[in-house]
Amino acid sequence: MKSDLWFVFAVTAGFLGFLMGYGVPPMQEVGIAAVGGHGGAAIETTAETDAAMEQFRELQKLTE
């Protein structure tokens, strides 16, 4: 029975792993600061944040 339960955990972890792999890299591409974070000292301006978000929106439009 216990091995069965590990199968449940493995499937759940597999899906979560896939979702994390799907969701986290876009943030790495634009940089943490660009999505509102403060990973670096010189990347806190609103203009840069908006520009990065805008760039992503434009890319999104192209792929729609």
Binding site: G23, V24, P26, V30, V35, M53
Partner: peptide, 10 residues
């Protein structure tokens, strides 16, 4: 992950 997907999908 939610924040990442919001960035991805804009």
């Amino acid at each position: 992950v939610m924040q990442g997907l919001r960035v991805k999908f804009g």
